[in-house]
């Protein structure tokens, strides 16, 4: 079992300009911006499960990312 991040598209506020998870993810090209839906999307094969995106998202009170088992 391996934990990866998952974005709740309804809670994600990327269309308001938020890029916190994309800024602070330590992995390159791991969290991508879906420019049509304007939500952050996780490339699961690149996610190492560090939870930093969850920390920054929760600290900004967006609570849009949670860790799920894969």
């Amino acid at each position: 079992m391996y934990n990866v991040a998952e974005v709740n598209a309804e809670e994600c506020v990327a269309q308001k300009g938020c890029r916190l998870c994309i800024m602070y993810c330590p992995e390159a090209n791991c969290i991508q911006m879906d420019t049509t839906k304007m939500v952050a999307t996780i490339v699961e094969s690149r996610c190492k499960g560090c939870e930093l995106c969850v920390v920054v998202c929760d600290a900004a009170k967006h609570n849009a990312i949670k860790m799920v088992a894969r």
Binding site: I22, P26, E27, A28, N29, L52
Partner: peptide, 28 residues
């Protein structure tokens, strides 16, 4: 600049640093 994150392909591929390593944030 960092504003390219998420839309443009970054110049780093998958690497073997630990999960959550601040060094990889700085590198990015």
């Amino acid at each position: 600049g960092w504003k390219d994150f998420g839309t443009a392909t970054e110049l780093i591929a998958e690497h073997s640093l630990c999960a959550g390593c601040p060094e990889s944030i700085a590198f990015r």
